[in-house]
Design a protein around this nucleic acid. Structure first.
Lengths: 234, 234
DNA sequence: GACGGTTATCGTCGTACTGACGATAAAGGA
DNA sequence: TCCTTTATCGTCAGTACGACGATAACCGTC
C-alpha cells in the first residue's frame, strides 16, 4: 500500500466483531448481545467494538472478548476470520469490521455491556434461522465463522478448544458431532483421533463421569495439523 | 459491532494491498512496485491503495488490480486474504490494510503508477529472501498469500486460474510443481486430476505445443471443491 | 523413412486409510 | 446377578495412495 501525499485521506471507522462459539447442552452456541439503540434496536448482534488508536487488531479482539465475557485470561482460541466493508453495512457511517473467531469450553453467562440491553449464549441454528434476523450483516459473519470452525475441526486439533483441559474421546466426539451437526461412529472416531499423531496426549487417568466403562483422559497434544485429517462425511 | 453515540470516534486509513501471483518462466512471481517516496523509498512493496468512501473492499481490490496491471476484465481469481492492523506497520499513521490474493495466467508486464518508481513481476523466492526486504510488513503478507495459494491448490480447482482457458494436464502439473516447489509424478498426477469429479472438462481437442505425444485439452470443470483433494507430498 | 527423444496415457502392485459393523471390557443401577 | 451404557479393540471389503512398468503418438534428425 502506498500513501499519497494528499491532504485529505479517506478514513473509516474500524471495529472488531466477535464470533464466539461454545457448546452448551449439546447445542453449538454463539455469544450475542441485544442492541439497546437504533439502528436495529432490540435485535441480536455480534459483540464488538472500536479498535483503539494504538491497539493491534488481535489485541482489540482479545480485549472485547474479555469485556463481553467478563473473564480475562480465557482458555480460548482466537483467530482472525475475515473483514467486512460494504459501504452500506452500517446505515450511520462507513464502518470496516474485522471479524474474529473465538472457540472456548462452556463459558460463564455473559453480562450486558453499556451499549447492550442484554447478552446471552444463543444456539447458532436459531440465530441463523429466518426468524429474528441478526443486526447489520452479522448473520453472514456468523455463518462464515461457523463454517470456519467446522473446517478447522477437520485439519487441526481445535476441537479440543471446546473441551476442558482434560477430556475423553467420547467428549471430543460430542464436540465434532455438535459442530458438524452429524452423527459419528464411536469406534471409527476413536481409531482416528487416537491414530492422528500428536493430537491427544494420555494423562494416564480415567473417568466414569459419562457412565459406562471408565474412559481414558487426554490432553491436547503438540500437533498443529492433523495427520491424517478427520474429514466430514459427505 | 456496536457504535457508541460518541462525538469522537477513532478512525483509521483503510487500504487494500494485493498479492498478485502468476507464473512466468517456471517461476512463481508476484506483482511488486518500487516505492518512489519515503518511507521505504526504493524498496519493493505490494501494490495497493486507499478504499474509496463508497467502495466495497472487493471492488477496491479489483480496481487496484486493474490499475496496476492496466488490464480490466481480467480472467483472474480474486479473494480476500487477511487484514493487517499493527498500529506501527506504517510509520506515518494508523493504517489498516485488507489484503487480497489474485491468481492469474501469464499477465502482461505492469506499468508504473503515479506513486511507484517501477513495477515488475518478481520471483516470490527472491522477494522473500533475506536480501532486499519488502517495505512495511509486506513480506509477511506475501508469505501469507503464497501459503494460501499453495493450500487452495490442494482443495480447490484454482490451479486452473494460472493456466489459459484451455490447457493440458502437463501444463496444470507444471502449475502445481511451481507453486508447491516440488516435483510430481506425471502418471499419478494425471490419474488424480482426471479422477477428481468436475475438475476438468475435456474439449475434445488436442495440442502438441509442448512436444511429444499430442495431449488432450481441458477447461476448468464445474467443481468448486476437489473430491478427492490433491494433497501436497509430506 | 527408420530411429531416438519426448511427452501422454493407461495399468499394476503393495500399502494405508476409510466406513460399516462385530466382539469384548468395565463400570453403574435395577 | 443381570442389564444397560459407554469404551476399546478387531475384522473386512472398498478406495485411495506412491512407486513404477508399458505403450502410444508426436517431433526432429540422419
Amino acid at each position: 500500500m502506498v500513501l499519497a501525499m494528499s491532504h485529505e485521506l479517506p478514513r473509516s471507522a474500524v471495529t472488531v466483531d466477535l464470533v464466539v462459539l461454545t457448546l452448551r447442552a449439546a447445542d453449538l452456541c454463539a455469544l450475542l448481545v441485544r442492541r439497546a439503540a437504533a439502528p436495529y434496536k432490540g435485535r441480536w448482534a455480534l459483540p464488538g467494538g472500536f479498535v483503539e488508536p494504538d491497539e493491534d487488531l488481535h489485541t482489540a479482539a482479545g480485549r472485547e472478548l474479555a469485556e463481553e465475557t467478563s473473564v480475562s485470561d480465557l482458555p480460548v482460541h482466537l483467530e482472525q476470520l475475515r473483514s467486512y466493508g460494504d459501504p452500506n453495512r452500517d446505515p450511520r457511517m462507513r464502518v470496516v469490521s474485522v471479524a474474529y473467531l473465538a472457540l472456548g469450553p462452556d463459558l460463564p453467562d455473559p453480562v450486558a455491556g453499556s451499549d447492550a440491553a442484554d447478552a446471552a449464549w444463543r444456539p447458532v441454528a436459531e440465530a441463523l434461522a429466518g426468524t429474528a434476523k441478526l443486526a447489520f450483516d452479522h448473520a453472514v459473519i456468523l455463518a462464515d465463522g461457523v463454517e470456519r470452525a467446522r473446517s478447522k475441526l477437520e485439519y487441526t486439533p481445535l476441537g479440543t478448544a471446546f473441551c476442558g483441559r482434560e477430556f475423553t474421546v467420547g467428549e471430543l466426539r460430542e464436540v465434532y458431532e455438535t459442530v458438524w451437526g452429524v452423527g459419528l461412529d464411536p469406534r471409527n472416531f476413536h481409531r482416528k483421533v487416537t491414530g492422528a499423531v500428536g493430537f491427544l496426549t494420555p494423562t494416564g487417568q480415567t473417568t466414569t463421569r459419562n457412565g459406562g466403562r471408565p474412559a481414558r483422559l487426554y490432553r491436547r497434544g503438540p500437533a498443529q495439523l492433523l495427520m491424517p485429517p478427520l474429514l466430514r462425511p459427505a
